[in-house]
């Protein structure tokens, strides 16, 4: 009985975590390729693209 409980807790936690990720993904607006990078490639966030890096965008956001 303890074994079944142990396995059940593990799988329930795994499924709950995956569902939670899905809910958080679903709550975000769909990513638009023409907007600043979201969910794109790593280069899209880090690279010297037209959209800029998160660091540069973070400093831009802090500008008055």
């Amino acid at each position: 009985m303890s074994i079944i409980v142990g396995y059940a807790i593990t799988f329930a936690a795994g499924v709950a975590y995956v569902l939670r990720l899905g809910r958080r993904e679903g709550a975000l607006p769909p990513s638009d390729p023409s907007s600043p990078p979201s969910g794109g490639t790593q280069e899209g966030v880090n690279g010297d693209t037209e959209q800029g890096t998160p660091e540069s965008r973070a400093s831009d956001a802090r500008k008055p």
Binding site: G14, L21, A27, L28, P29, P54
Partner: peptide, 28 residues
């Protein structure tokens, strides 16, 4: 399983950061 969850969680984190940096107007 860890690699799969990492991939999903990281993509989500990137999208959330992009929205955060874009400002409150971009929030859903």
């Amino acid at each position: 399983g860890f690699a799969y969850l990492m991939m999903r969680r990281y993509r989500l984190a990137k999208r959330e950061l992009s929205l955060e940096l874009a400002g409150p107007d971009a929030e859903p």
